Computed example of a mutant assay.
Amino acid sequence: ARRKAPASALAVSRAVADYGNPYGDPAPAWERLNATADVRPGAEVLYFPDGHAAFREPQAAEATWQVLQHAGITATVLPHWIDAGETLLELGFLEQAHRQARHVVSALRECDTRVVLFSSGDTYHMVAEEYPETLGLSVEGLTLRHTSEFFADLVAAGRLRFKPLDARVTYHDPCRLGRGMGVYDAPRQVLSAIPGLTLTEPPWTRERAVCCGGGGGMPWTNPDLTAAAAENAAAMLALPQPDLIVTGSAHCKSHLASALPEGKVLELAELISGVL
């Protein structure tokens, strides 16, 4: 199967093998992943950013960290970032994905924090669903949550309060977070808690939301289709004439941003960190 894989897919496999991430970068762009000071024993939550937040959209990872700190949550990260293997699995490298998954599960179990937060629906779905169902790896004993779910709980408990924001905002449902994990209400609950914000919906939303083009390994194997999907999703999300488009994934943010004016799309934590 490896001999039949396209060169672009093989490049991802080699990058993960050689550098530990699908981008082939020597170190994460989010500096906290390279700082031992942010590995904190006994923390309430462990934040596990996906590769895109760690290497391509570090401002989204930092915004998540800032929101947690503002709410008084003690958070930690793994001593070394580990690729969860979702892209490898999508591209058909099952054995390599299984090896990555074993590394992740081992690292999570060695940590004394049992609540794991993901800011990506892809990584969340990979660990929560694909690890036990496809790869046969148990994640029992770990509480796995998307950051939007955790933020919604903090809002309900009065631990997150926001400054007013006079803006029309359309929320984009990432595929794996929505259709994969059923998380639709939590991000909308967080956005609706911001005074002055008007939450709008595109014609196709929730279960029928339009893909940004970032899933299925397409950015590597079919970049033209990815670009077309991003253009289609951006056009759909712009129909309610929002001031901002917010999505629950740094990965989706990058693809939507390629088809929208600069500053038009934000990851959820980026928006709320600006109104704390």
Rank of each mutant, 00 (worst) to 15 (best):
R168E: 03
A186F: 04
H103F: 07
V105W: 10
L135D: 07
A17K: 11
F118G: 03
H103E: 15
V104P: 06
T36C: 05
G42K: 15
L142I: 05
D18L: 13
F151P: 01
P240W: 01
P240E: 02
A5I: 06
Q69Y: 00
K253L: 05
R109T: 12
D185E: 15
F48K: 00
T76K: 13
G248P: 00
L260D: 11
H80D: 09
G92T: 05
A186I: 07
W65H: 14
T76P: 08
V77I: 11
V104D: 09
R159A: 08
P79N: 10
L10N: 14
S148N: 05
V39Y: 02
P219F: 05
A234K: 01
P28R: 05
V16M: 10
E130P: 03
Q69N: 13
V39H: 13
A230C: 07
M236G: 00
M236R: 08
R179S: 09
L276R: 07
Q241R: 15
T123G: 01
A53H: 02
A250I: 01
H70Y: 14
G24K: 04
L271R: 07
E110Y: 06
S273M: 08
T200W: 01
Y131P: 02
A75I: 01
R145C: 06
A97W: 07
A5Y: 02
P195L: 12
F48Y: 15
T36D: 14
G217I: 06
L46Y: 08
H125L: 13
A1Y: 02
N21I: 07
D112Y: 11
S258K: 03
P203V: 09
V67L: 13
Q189D: 15
Q59L: 12
F93A: 04
T200R: 09
G217E: 06
M236P: 03
A43P: 04
S192D: 14
N21R: 09
G85H: 14
A43G: 12
D185G: 10
A97I: 01
G24M: 09
A71Y: 08
E270R: 05
G180K: 13
A230K: 06
V116K: 10
H98I: 02
L268I: 07
C211M: 04
P240G: 03
G20I: 09
I245A: 00
G85E: 10
C211K: 03
R2M: 13
R161S: 15
G178S: 10
E129R: 10
A101V: 12
T113M: 08
V115C: 04
G20F: 10
T147H: 15
P174V: 03
A17C: 06
D243N: 10
M218I: 04
A29D: 10
A152W: 00
L94A: 11
A37M: 05
Y124F: 14
G141L: 11
T221F: 07
L191S: 09
G215L: 07
V12S: 10
Q96W: 01
E129Q: 12
P6L: 10
A37H: 02
P28H: 10
A157P: 03
P195K: 12
N21Q: 13
F151K: 01
G178R: 00
P58M: 09
A11K: 15
G42Y: 14
V169Y: 01
E207D: 13
L197R: 08
